[in-house]
Amino acid sequence: MSISLEEVNKIAKLARLTFSDAEKQKLQQELSAILDYVDQLKELSGKTSFQITDDPDAVNLVRDDVVDAQINPQEFLAQVPAREGKFIKVKSVLE
């Protein structure tokens, strides 16, 4: 197993996901199998660089910062699970 149960717990916490004990054991096996497979990338350890000749057309693109009338704030707010008037309601962030 390339990943321990403690690590599964740690990642689950970082990802804000809850799992049952059985799910955690299954995840430990599945994640280990996937990580074992991608371990072939270790073969690339000697190689440090590659040559990408960038597309000369690949330039940074920007647009003008103008209000787009296509977007209706009311329609966006209609998708919010909990709100008061035009405000989005959340549980307190600072206790």
Partner: peptide, 23 residues
């Protein structure tokens, strides 16, 4: 995250809303 759109599962605090919604 259960705040802006889509499913929102209740929780005691903000963190629990995240956990419950995503799980």
């Amino acid at each position: 995250d259960g705040i802006r759109f889509g499913l929102s599962a209740p929780g005691k605090n903000l963190e629990e809303v995240y956990y419950n919604t995503r799980s």
